[in-house]
Design a protein around this nucleic acid. Structure first.
Length: 573
DNA sequence: GCCGTTTTCGGCCCGACTGTTTTCAGTCG
């Protein structure tokens, strides 16, 4: 199996971090990190690009030297420069960098002066009081290190954005109504709709000082205050989530919101553009020779650089600034574009609510249609439907459609893809449905080749419409199964099949990176909630966000189409 | 090591907070 982009990127990140510890030119170090970031988020397989002899220097941040290194990695699986560095500087130093408060300079000091190579070495030295004697260190740093070593063992995890959402709401509710508070907004990766967040960045503007900062530090969920100043404080909550609050003057709100929304890569690209235009951007505004040009709104910050406003979901440093300069930013899909949901469950299998309740909830969301996709018989734990029970549900749906006003239920099924690539129900019943959603629910461990062929074979069935949660991953719980997604997308496009963007917050499958790939390949997609209750239909926004992160507009998403057009699309052959 | 409206050399984002310092380096986001 060829190396994945993310494995290649890891090698460059390792090389960069080790060279940083060695004191290498920081710009060279940054170049490797930049390349790693480009590689990790690139929608096409670099291994395949090398095999096809494509020019890698076309990629941003990849020049002659790094392109050559990538070729070597792809052909040999090794990066000789990294192996050279590892002879001098042990790989275990990278663990030390993960400790908060330890960066390359301090790790270098620890290694050269105390021969500290591992976390165990570090702990021993800290306990015996040798750290505080080092130049640039002191008793406080030593204590900090011991504290962080303990927490490090607990393993820091990233929170689902969905989990962080309720935390953010609670904190905002706590701060709202505070004297002097003007505006307040969550920025950071939360605002960019990343699937997980490492912390929450909250931004506030205040009139005449205000008491917001004090009120924030007094929030009942705070476990520990990590740092505090007049404009910026950090706390760790009892649930482990870190929250930062920044306070800026009202006239700087836009500049600060832009700045604290990031991403880091986006901001670097934006500031580089500003420097070229003789401007300086910071969180207080855009300046030319000390004169303030913009800052109150994000729109004017971008406009002062000759750019249209860029949606937060696009701000990942994937060429969005170049696209904005050339006026070719996509018109992103919006929640309101969706006319229906194509994946949900009822109490016939493992859902909580009855058909009618699901229909009413969909209608309340303004949908035109809702596909009922209960499980098929192989999924016995969910009491999956056999042909007879499915036929009965189809009759119920027909009867309900007679009665319902303003919403049409579609007869459908979430049918299991069996190990040999056949579907769990016979064609004679599938053909009577409006659509099928097809899923892999077992045999996750097959080789990439076998898993890919299993799915492609399933797509050969003329009644295969939508591939549900295509990679099977569960965030923080289960890895994606091995699969050649590029081949699957191409196969789906050729056969007129559709891939799902599953909006369940712990799935988000496809995710933003996959959506970029889908955009490039041109395969049709559906955004579906996979709701197991009427309330669950509300999670559509999470799927839409991933589509937006993948630069998608509504024309590639089938459930933005009116019913008649959708049904036509679903008829294959 | 990358890159080019400063174009093949000489730049490379910018500020807050902390701790160790007496004016600043390191880290972080």
């Amino acid at each position: 199996m060829a190396l994945s982009n993310s494995e290649i990127a890891d090698l460059f990140d390792q090389l960069a971090e080790l060279l940083d510890i060695e004191g290498e030119n920081p710009f060279r170090v940054r170049a490797y990190h930049n390349a790693a970031r480009t590689i990790r988020s690139y929608p096409k397989s670099l291994a395949e690009m090398v095999a096809a002899d494509e020019d890698l220097t076309e990629l941003p941040g990849i020049g002659e030297a790094i392109a050559k290194k990538i070729e070597t990695i792809v052909r040999t699986g090794r990066l000789p420069q990294l192996e050279q560095v590892l002879k001098r500087t042990p790989k275990s130093l990278l663990e030390l960098l993960r400790i908060e408060g330890l960066g390359p300079k301090r790790v270098k000091t620890l290694f050269y002066l105390l021969k500290i190579k591992t976390l165990e070495d570090l702990e021993r030295a800290a306990r015996s009081g040798r750290i505080r004697e080092l130049p640039g260190f002191g008793p406080k740093t030593e204590e900090l290190i011991l504290n962080h070593l303990q927490k490090h063992a607990l393993q820091e995890k990233r929170f689902l954005r969905f989990e962080a959402e309720s935390v953010a709401e609670a904190i905002l509710a706590h701060l709202k109504g505070c004297p002097g508070l003007d505006r307040i907004e969550v920025a950071g990766s939360f605002r960019r709709w990343k699937e997980t967040v490492g912390d929450l960045d909250i931004l506030a503007t205040v009139r005449d000082g205000g008491e917001v900062m004090a009120r924030f530090l007094a929030y009942e969920g705070v476990e520990e205050v990590l740092s505090h100043g007049p404009t910026r404080s950090s706390v760790r909550l009892k649930n482990g989530l870190q929250v930062d609050l920044r306070v800026v003057p009202t006239e700087s709100f836009g500049a600060a919101l832009q700045y604290f929304t990031g991403s880091k890569a986006h901001n670097i690209a934006l500031r580089t553009l500003a420097v070229k235009q003789g401007l300086k951007i910071n969180e207080y505004g855009v300046f030319r020779a000390g004169e303030r040009l913009a800052g109150a709104t994000e729109e004017e910050v971008y406009a002062s650089l000759g750019l249209p406003w860029i949606a937060p979901e696009l701000r990942e440093g994937r060429g969005e600034i170049e696209a904005a300069l050339e006026n070719r930013l996509p018109k992103l899909i919006e929640l309101a574009d969706l006319r229906g949901d194509l994946h949900c469950h009822t109490d016939a299998t493992d859902g909580q609510d009855a058909l009618e309740a699901m229909a009413e909830a969909a209608k309340a969301l303004g949908y035109e249609y809702l596909a009922i996709t209960d499980h098929s018989k192989r999924l016995t734990v969910a009491r999956g439907l056999d042909e007879q029970r499915l036929r009965r549900q189809m009759e119920q749906i027909d009867a309900l459609n007679e009665k319902l006003q303003g919403i049409r239920l579609l007869k459908a099924i979430e049918v299991d893809i069996l190990e040999d690539g056949s579907l769990d129900l016979p064609e004679r019943v599938l053909k009577d449905l409006d659509l099928t959603v097809c899923s892999v629910h077992y045999q996750f461990h097959l080789s990439a080749k076998k898993q890919t062929e299993r799915i492609l074979r399933a797509m050969d069935n003329p009644y295969f419409n939508i591939l549900a949660h295509p990679t099977g991953r569960l965030i923080n719980q289960r890895q994606a199964y091995e699969i050649d997604l590029e081949r699957i997308m191409q196969g789906a496009r050729e056969r007129g099949c559709i891939l799902e963007i599953n909006a369940q917050p712990e799935r988000l499958d496809l995710n933003g990176e996959h959506c970029l790939m889908a955009r490039e390949i041109g395969v049709k997609l559906a955004i579906s909630t996979d709701a197991h209750s009427a309330l669950g239909l509300n999670l559509m926004r999470y799927g839409v966000a991933q589509a937006r992160r993948g630069w998608l507009s509504k024309d590639q998403i089938v459930n933005t189409r009116p019913l008649r057009e959708l049904l036509r699309l679903l008829k294959r052959a």
